[in-house]
């Protein structure tokens, strides 16, 4: 089974709010010093799902990431968890790519890798949380896609996929090749073995530019108008009353005045 996993490196979501800053003029997030970026958590679930499938059915896993040179680390983490090869698409023209451009360049990268049975992505990336690349990518490749996925089984050339819905899940049968966008319900990503880490460190990651893949950074669909941290202002108003009952009644009246209830 040939599996491709798309991985994005993101700002560590554990970054304390006090250290999160944006450059409003440049419309960019300023990376907080000393906090290294990490693999997007849902992508770690996709990597884990791929490695489990490889353990059950054999095969080869290729990891692809669009990102800056630092994203090499994200690829190496995937390699240390059990993936076989890595491809980094590093191109300044794509630094602020929107979902469409990202899907476009990933589609070209996937075609350059060759035959595949399954593409796994995380359901969304924790930086912008748009959840658009996976479906866009499947569309561009002309293959079926499912999101968000909580479980994958392979029987012959079909997949049985557990798809999360409100209050439960549904089970779908999907022909391969297909794209699945994995959610955290699917698994708990493993800690890489230290041997795996040492091997991944020595492994070479292929690096290509968009031009190498024959795509250019046109066709942007989204314009970022403004980037800012919203100001949250809170005011406290004490509700008084002689007894708890009276306080509750006064609270209810105030909430109604504010049209909250």
């Amino acid at each position: 089974m040939n599996i491709i996993v798309c991985v994005k490196q993101v700002q560590d979501p554990e970054t304390p709010a006090s250290q999160f800053r944006v450059d409003e003029a440049a419309k960019k997030v300023i990376p907080p010093p000393g906090i290294p970026p990490t693999v997007n958590q849902y992508d770690a679930n996709a990597i884990e799902a791929a490695v489990q499938l490889k353990e059950q059915h054999g095969g080869r896993i290729t990891v692809i990431s669009l990102g800056k040179d630092t994203a090499r680390d994200a690829i190496k983490q995937a390699l240390s968890m059990g993936c076989d090869a890595g491809l980094l698409i590093d191109d300044p023209a794509f630094e602020d790519a929107d979902a469409y451009q990202t899907a476009n360049v990933l589609a070209a990268a996937i075609k350059s890798v060759g035959d595949y049975d399954l593409i796994l992505c995380g359901r969304q990336a924790s930086d912008w949380d748009q959840a658009q690349v996976p479906q866009g990518l499947a569309e561009l490749l002309g293959i079926p896609s499912v999101t968000p996925v909580a479980g994958i089984e392979v029987t012959g050339t079909t997949l049985r996929v557990k798809r999360l819905i409100e209050d439960g899940y549904e089970v779908l049968e999907v022909p391969m090749p297909a794209l699945l966008a994995v959610s955290n319900e699917a698994n708990q990503p493993r800690y890489p073995t230290l041997k795996g880490i040492m091997a991944a460190a020595r492994a070479k990651v292929d690096v290509k530019s968009a031009a190498d893949l024959g795509v250019n950074a046109v066709g942007r669909k989204v314009q970022l108008l403004r980037l800012y941290v919203p100001k949250v202002e809170s005011q406290i108003e004490w509700i008084t009353g002689e007894t708890p009952e009276e306080q509750a009644a006064n609270l209810a009246r105030r909430l109604r005045e504010e049209r909250v209830i």
Partner: peptide
């Protein structure tokens, strides 16, 4: 070396 850096991170 890169392997020691990755080892530390892990």
């Amino acid at each position: 070396p890169e392997e020691i850096q990755l080892l530390r991170r892990s």
